[in-house]
Computed example of a mutant assay.
Amino acid sequence: MNPMSICTPSSSHSSSSGSPTKAWIIHGVVVGAAIVAAIGARGYLLGRSRRFRSRAIGIIPARFASSRFQGKPLVNILGKPMIQRTWERAKLATTLDRVVVATDDEKIADCCRRFGADVIMTSESCRNGAERCSEAVQKLEKKYDIVVNIQGDEPLIEPEIIDGIVKALQVTPDAVFSTAVTPLKPEDAFDTNRVKCVVDNLGYAIYFSRGLIPFNKSGKVNLHFPYMLHLGIQSYDCEFLKLYPKLEPTPLQLEEDLEQLKILENGYKIKVIKVDHDAHGVDTPEDVKKIESLMVEKNLS
């Protein structure tokens, strides 16, 4: 398969001119293809479940076009582009053998090369960070067991968190994905840019949402409940990540616009670690000043 084609969205089927029977046949073919892809991934993972995942690579997906913040990876934060600050933090993680930037934009690529980062060019048609990481890893000559998707808009991500999710996936062979959560601040409870997560007693994700979960009858924040905020970092089993784009988009994923839900809806397990991290992602231009003030306060400039 041509690596450049894996991010291309599936073409939509119109049912306006076809018969109901034909529409159901088409629907069955699409669903059947998704099931085959899921079974293929599942079968591979069952075969490798006893193998220790040793080699890990960090990939920072970055695109220039963004509906909320155009050119966000290149925004200046105390004299350095944000993508550089994220890359420098990721390079401090002890579990990563390599850190690369995956982008479809030459301006981002040129910037990253100037400060010394390895860059992999990817297709403009990638629909999310996971698909961009998937395309990038297939262009690498060296083989890896774990791919860490590091969000470029978390310039203060702690290297210890990167190491934590890598180790979590290494010791949990039945999971294909690992991520981290931290306590949610009450003032962020209804912020749809802050993704929430609920976790079971064994440390596996139950659900992710842009809304407040769990939600109670009063419709208000329960100040005594330990709500969890999902941090923008996740690691994947490398072979599962290659198969990920073949899985059809799922209803919950599309409704919430959260790629993690496609993994859960297909029956795969996500391991979650809990950390204490004062999350400071950059979602809007206004967030830049907050980040800079915090860095000056903590002497991180």
Rank of each mutant, 00 (worst) to 15 (best):
V36I: 15
Q138V: 02
V99R: 01
I263S: 07
L252C: 01
A23K: 14
R194F: 05
E88G: 13
G32A: 07
D105G: 01
C133E: 05
F177H: 13
M82Y: 02
L202Y: 12
G58W: 07
S10L: 13
E154G: 06
D278V: 10
I263P: 03
L261S: 14
M295S: 09
A102L: 01
V181T: 12
D110I: 07
L229V: 01
R113K: 12
A38C: 09
A38T: 09
I35V: 12
S19L: 10
V147F: 11
T8I: 09
S16C: 09
I39C: 15
L261P: 13
L46P: 04
R113H: 07
R63N: 15
V176D: 08
L231N: 13
H230I: 05
G129L: 03
A168P: 07
F215M: 08
S218I: 00
Y236A: 04
D237T: 09
K262Q: 14
K220I: 01
E255F: 14
L169R: 08
V137M: 08
G43V: 11
V195R: 06
Q253D: 11
I206M: 04
S5P: 00
F52G: 11
I59F: 02
E259K: 00
L92A: 10
I165V: 00
V198Q: 08
P226D: 15
